[in-house]
Design a protein around this nucleic acid. Structure first.
Lengths: 220, 220
DNA sequence: AATTTAAACGGACCTCGGTCCGGATCGTAA
DNA sequence: TTACGATCCGGACCGAGGTCCGTTTAAATT
């Protein structure tokens, strides 16, 4: 055989599962040997502690491994690379948000009219990003990967669905991507931190954008 | 003195020059000692050659230095870091585009109505990104820095100006950022390469987006 | 309980981006 | 032309991400 099996069979990222819409809740670990699961938990905890103490910059793969009393190889086996580890940390709040707009109470969850849900959605994402900006930004390297992340896909699917109900004859899929692009953490960071815009203005910007984009022809 | 002078006084990035709008043409090197200028040119040429031969991944700082017959320190002194070097390579086509929409022939340059210019602008950016995707993506790490790059600021200023002429009573500055976000190279890459959308669809998406965003209330 | 195997472990090792600083060069002023 | 200071050069050096592979261990099988 000329094709050697890859040393690290890749964590779990692929997730070819269609996960169309519905509450896919993302793949999660397929199963995991007892020790592996234990170490995974330890690593996440250690990483979180390191962030709290020394900021994201303090999250060295070696430091995390040491803090979790584990070998460096183990970290990479589990999370693939640094970005993977960071994304795993983000995953928690991601699932939270996902749960909120899939089954939570109205303005965000089902029950409210689509337009209103869309507004609420953006604002929720906005403030969530604002909180964990540091982490979100650190997880950005390899910018294109963020689009394939299951959590991000869930957001996209959700927005697309809402758009379909509001402006059925538009290219909702593409439009959704555009709307999401305006909520990108890097952009939020630039606007609020580097250009000093207050969050309220950014928020108003989102509401206005949604209004413009969904404005269906002349209201007569 | 407790503040030691930084070993590398930073290339030129800062550019506090307001460069409001007008053809700022960006700071460029203030001047440069003869040998320094020669080496800078050599380095850019070497980097371009390496890209052509081995792709962006082949552009190792050490490889570039070696190919240019120069020490590694010289590369860093001149460009700050890898991203800086990559952005310098991108700079040329960036200036080209800038020149086109500042003083070029109509659909893009002055002379056409603002709405039409805005459409043309997006399409130009779109195709430019599509060409040098690899390079654009590689230059992304440290995602937030791209917003402060003078070339990017010029784009933003231009879009803002066009918007002001079309929808004067909107938050044009913020709206411009949003529109630009939908032209982000990483997004283009995702849509065309990972999700297989044809460029024509992305292009149509831009045109539609512009139409929606600038649609001024009811056309009666 | 013994055997087997796929998976997990650990840490040495490699590469590459980034830093430092002694020494060579350029430009300039005398 | 010479002398001097600012600038630049080069490559040794460092830290962190990422890989490899021999060893260990969980768990399924007999």
């Amino acid at each position: 055989m000329s094709s050697a099996p890859p040393p690290f069979p890749k964590p779990q990222e692929p997730s070819d599962a269609p996960a169309l819409l519905e509450l896919g809740t993302a793949p999660e670990e397929p199963c995991l040997r007892a020790d592996a699961a234990r170490n995974r938990a330890r690593l996440l905890e250690a990483a979180a502690r390191l962030i709290a103490e020394h900021g994201v910059a303090g999250v060295t793969m070696e430091a995390v491994a040491a803090a979790a009393r584990v070998g460096k190889g183990t970290v990479f086996r589990r999370f693939g690379d640094r970005t993977g580890l960071l994304m795993a940390l983000l995953d928690h709040s991601g699932r939270q948000l996902q749960a909120d707009f899939l089954g939570g109470p109205p303005p965000l969850g089902p029950g409210a009219p689509p337009l209103e849900r869309l507004r609420a959605f953006g604002i929720a994402v906005l403030y969530r990003s604002a909180e964990q900006l540091e982490l979100q930004l650190a997880a950005q390297p390899e910018a294109c990967r963020r689009f394939s992340h299951p959590a991000t896909q869930a957001l996209r699917t959700h927005v697309t669905m809402l758009l379909r109900q509001i402006v059925p004859d538009a290219d909702c899929d593409l439009l959704a991507q555009t709307l999401l692009a305006s909520l990108d953490p890097a952009l939020i960071h630039h606007l609020t931190r580097q250009r000093g815009m207050p969050m309220s203005r950014v928020e108003a910007g989102w509401v206005d954008l949604v209004a413009r984009v969904t404005r269906t022809d002349p209201p007569a």
